[in-house]
């Protein structure tokens, strides 16, 4: 992991986590899946850098 920041980086993590769940409130599974996909694309575009994105894809795939 050369470029992807895997250290804590979000201020007030509990607030962010609550916000993340809140946007799914009242959504069906299908609507939530669509929302997550939109969110992933928005965040990925913000990152932009292909190396960082590749590391993020690998980090998401890695399981213990």
């Amino acid at each position: 992991m050369a470029k992807l920041n895997t250290k804590p980086n979000i201020a007030a993590p509990d607030d962010f986590y609550a916000d993340l769940l809140a946007i799914h409130d009242g959504l069906s599974k299908e609507e939530s899946d669509a929302l997550n996909a939109r969110l992933i694309l928005i965040l990925a575009n913000h990152v932009g850098d292909r190396e960082t994105l590749a590391e993020a894809l690998a980090a998401a795939q890695a399981r213990n």
Binding site: D33, A34, A37, R38, I40, L41, I42
Partner: peptide
Amino acid sequence: RIFRDAALDL
């Protein structure tokens, strides 16, 4: 399809 539709929506 979910990602495809997400890209189109956005």
